[in-house]
Simulated assay, not measured.
Amino acid sequence: MMNFENLDVWKRSARLSAEIYKATASLKDFGFRDQLTRSGLSVPSNIAEGMSRDSIKEQKRFLDIAISSLSEARTQIYIGIDIGYLPKQQGHEWLVETRELSAMINSLKNKIT
C-alpha cells in the first residue's frame, strides 16, 4: 500500500481542486459550479482511496475513476470558457494541468504490479 500523500499526482490534483473551488466560489450558476467542483474533488479523492487499497485490481480501478473525473472536469472547463464562466487564461492552464495529471495517473497505473 502506497502513501498517497507522498504522490506528486495527488498533491497536484488536490491543488487543482482547491483552485477550482476558489475560482468558482462566486459563480451564481450553482449547477455548473457544483458539477465542476465535484469532478475536480473526485480526482485526488479517488487517487487516495485507490492507493489505500490492498488489491492491485482495486488500485487501478480507482485510478481509472480519477482519470474519468479529469475528463469530466476538462469537458466542464471547455464549456465554462465558452460560456464566459471561466477566464480563458485560467481555463487553459487547467486544461493543461488535467492532461498532465491524466498522464501521471496512467504512469502510476503502469508502475503498480
Rank of each mutant, 00 (worst) to 15 (best):
L7M: 09
Q35A: 10
T37C: 12
D29K: 13
G50C: 04
A25I: 13
E58Y: 14
A23R: 15
S52G: 12
I20L: 14
D54H: 14
I56Y: 13
A48K: 07
M104L: 13
W10F: 07
D8I: 06
K109L: 02
S102I: 03
S69Y: 00
L108R: 04
K11E: 02
R12V: 09
S69R: 02
I56G: 03
P87M: 09
F62P: 02
T98A: 10
M104V: 01
H92S: 14
L16T: 11
P87S: 11
R74H: 08
S17I: 06
G40V: 07
Q89V: 11
P87Y: 02
N46P: 00
I67S: 13
I79F: 01
L70N: 10
W94C: 12
S102H: 05
Y85T: 07
Y21A: 02
K109P: 08
F30M: 09
A103H: 04
I56L: 15
Y21I: 09
S42C: 14
D64P: 15
L7G: 03
G91E: 13
P44V: 06
N110Y: 00
H92T: 13
V9R: 00
I20Y: 06
V96R: 13
G80N: 08
L16W: 07
K28N: 14
M104E: 11
G40Q: 11
A103G: 11
R12L: 13
R61I: 01
I77L: 10
K22D: 12
D29L: 11
I81P: 01
V96F: 00
T37R: 12
V96C: 03
K11F: 05
L101Y: 00
Q59N: 11
E97P: 03
A18T: 13
S13N: 02
I112R: 03
R33E: 08
Q89F: 02
T24H: 09
R15M: 10
